[in-house]
C-alpha cells in the first residue's frame, strides 16, 4: 500500500512505515556469511525461525527451515542458536 504524502499537511506527526516485503531492497546482498542447513541433522525444533531477527527464515509445512537468501543478512544467529549444529555459516563465493 502506498501512503506517501505529497504535502506537509498530509504527513503523519512522526514517520510511520507500514510493513512490506523488502522495503529497503534486497538486503541479502549485504551478506558475507551464508547459513546452510543440513536437513539430515535438523530436528524441526524451529528455534532458528523464532530467533531470526529479519524474518528471513520460512517455516515449512514439516517445520523445517527454509532460508530466504534475498533478505538474510548472514548475521549467524540461527547457526549459533541451533542446538544440533545443523546450520553452518559459509563464506559467500566459497563452496
Amino acid at each position: 500500500m502506498s501512503r506517501v504524502p505529497k504535502t506537509r499537511k498530509e504527513m503523519p506527526l512522526t514517520p510511520l512505515s507500514f510493513p512490506t516485503v523488502g522495503s529497503m531492497g534486497k538486503t541479502g546482498t549485504w551478506r558475507t556469511f551464508r547459513p546452510e542447513v543440513d536437513y539430515s541433522k535438523c530436528t524441526r525444533c524451529t528455534l532458528c525461525w523464532i530467533y531470526c531477527p529479519d524474518a528471513a527464515i520460512i517455516r515449512q509445512a514439516d517445520d523445517s527451515p527454509k532460508i530466504d537468501y534475498d533478505y538474510c543478512k548472514g548475521c549467524g544467529i540461527c547457526a549459533n542458536e541451533c542446538p544440533v549444529k545443523a546450520i553452518t555459516m559459509c563464506r559467500e563465493e566459497e563452496e
Binding site: 504527513m11 512522526t14 514517520p15 510511520l16 512505515s17 507500514f18 510493513p19
Partner: peptide
C-alpha cells in the same frame, strides 16, 4: 502493524 520514528531522508 506499523513501525515508528523510522529513518527519514533529508527530503522529509
Amino acid at each position: 502493524p506499523i513501525s515508528h520514528a523510522n529513518l527519514v531522508s533529508p527530503e522529509w
